[in-house]
């Protein structure tokens, strides 16, 4: 199949006339001309005779049920604030998505040292609610929870030992709400 170049248009560019087409998305009409409003790809639909412009950069749309990755930035009583930086979209691709999420932590006794999460933990969660300024993140699931944590004493990456996390350097143990594949993921690389 041969490759065809899609036309890139910039704001203010005349893309068609209203005699030929109807102004579609991201366009406006001015004295019989259809003008592009954004920088993107020209999309002319010969079926419904519309001329539109498709944005080059699209912001990923979050949805309930999406898997997100982030870092714990605050642990309040029974709640963790997570800085979400990546989501898995509907095509199963990792895409950059920046948001603040809150997750309820497992119930614990008063004065319990282990809150299930600590600041700096890398976590995987599922979106269970979308609010105006934040996401509600669920951590109930086999593969949800902490993916990587470091020792609060010596900053060495902790390894899993039974149901606890163990620091190979200072031999400290910690308890976390860990994901099933804790330690298998190397959180490095570029996310698009």
């Amino acid at each position: 199949m041969e490759k065809k170049e899609r036309k890139i248009v910039t704001p203010g560019e005349e893309i068609a006339t209203t005699e030929e087409y109807v102004p579609g998305r991201n366009t406006y009409e001015d004295h019989g001309k259809i003008i592009s409003l954004i920088y993107g790809f020209l999309d002319v639909n010969e079926k419904d005779l519309t001329a539109s412009v498709l944005p080059i950069k699209t912001k990923p749309k979050i949805f309930v049920g999406a898997t997100v990755y982030g870092r714990v930035v605050e642990v309040e009583r029974g709640r963790a604030v997570i800085e979400v930086s990546v989501m898995v979209d509907k095509n199963n691709d990792l895409v950059e998505y920046v948001a603040i999420g809150r997750a309820d932590l497992p119930r614990q006794r008063e004065g319990d040292r282990d809150s299930g999460m600590m600041i700096g933990d890398l976590v995987r969660g599922k979106v269970i609610g979308i609010y105006k300024s934040e996401l509600k993140i669920g951590l109930l699931g086999k593969n949800l929870g902490v993916l990587k944590t470091i020792c609060p004493k010596c900053r060495t990456t902790m390894i899993r030992k039974g149901s606890l996390l163990f620091c190979p350097n200072c031999e400290r143990t910690e308890s976390r709400r860990v994901a099933e594949d804790y330690g298998d993921i190397v959180p490095e690389g570029v996310v698009r």
């Binding site: 199949m1 490759k3 899609r6 036309k7 890139i8």
Partner: peptide, 16 residues
Amino acid sequence: ALAGKYRDIALEEGGE
């Protein structure tokens, strides 16, 4: 400057 950046991805499969 704007078009040059995305010239590579402006090539799509197929065509009329």
